[in-house]
Design a protein around this nucleic acid. Structure first.
Lengths: 137, 137
DNA sequence: TATTGTTATACTCTATAACTATA
DNA sequence: TATAGTTATAGAGTATAACAATA
């Protein structure tokens, strides 16, 4: 019933996809943000500092500390010294971290497919690519 | 740098549009959620209870109480008895509330236009209508 | 002097539980 | 007995400030 303002529609869509993915992620022992942290560090072409990752995920660096603490405690990542700057940490995924990330990615892909189903394949592809184009990195 | 998972892209898009709209809304003295509350009550064809509105906006009914308190204190809405059930409240926008809503709507429309600009008119229209189709009321 | 990670602390936001009035 | 609104309280999530190590 909220009017068709894009802000509201985007919010709902985001919550919807998250809700679809959440049970599957929970079964893997991670939540959406932890999945995101694993993703950024795994996908980065060069070593990322915690601060870099925090900026990409739009969360505070102190929040990142807590997130990394949790992931490290569960053996999914390891803190490593950053090659270029000894003040920085970078993170490497353990074998288990990589495995969890792969399965989490499959969960997310399935949630997306469910969410986009009403559009049909062509419109779904267009929606995806539009969203990628709009990404304001 | 987070991979192209829809959850991440949607989250970013939502934050982006909110950020674009936020200064304009702040100038009107409301935040995104207050704007949403004004919108649902104004757009509802039949009187809405606070609980109905809370469900539509996916927030708790106790949170709705606080939101409505703030809006009422500033003279943007008035609580009224619900015609059909005396336990319920419905909200009516004051003249000022209506004026604020109209201007907030213009602010949001401008933010959307800015956000969608990279797509060009046709793809922007398609993006909008896809999101409307996906809306899971 | 500035920046990274960290800790401790405060604050905001939201949900939970309990109360009242209505149904 | 259940529901709507309300209040008070607790909890989660997040940011702010300060510190050590490094640049």
């Amino acid at each position: 019933m909220p009017p068709d303002r894009l802000v509201f529609l985007l919010k709902r869509a985001q919550v919807r996809v998250s809700d679809l993915a959440e049970p599957g992620l929970a079964a893997l022992g991670v939540d959406g943000r932890e999945f995101a942290v694993l993703s950024v560090f795994a996908a980065a072409p060069e070593p990322l500092s915690q601060r870099d990752a925090a900026a990409l995920l739009m969360i505070d660096r102190t929040t990142m500390v807590a997130l990394v603490d949790g992931l490290e405690r569960r053996g999914l990542v390891e803190r490593r010294g950053h090659p270029a700057d000894r003040r920085k940490n970078t993170l490497v995924l353990t074998a288990e971290g990589t495995a969890v990330l792969e399965r989490a990615d499959a969960v997310a892909a399935e949630a997306e497919a469910q969410f986009l189903a009403p559009l049909g394949p062509d419109r779904a592809d267009e929606f995806r690519s539009a969203l990628q184009l709009l990404r304001p990195y």
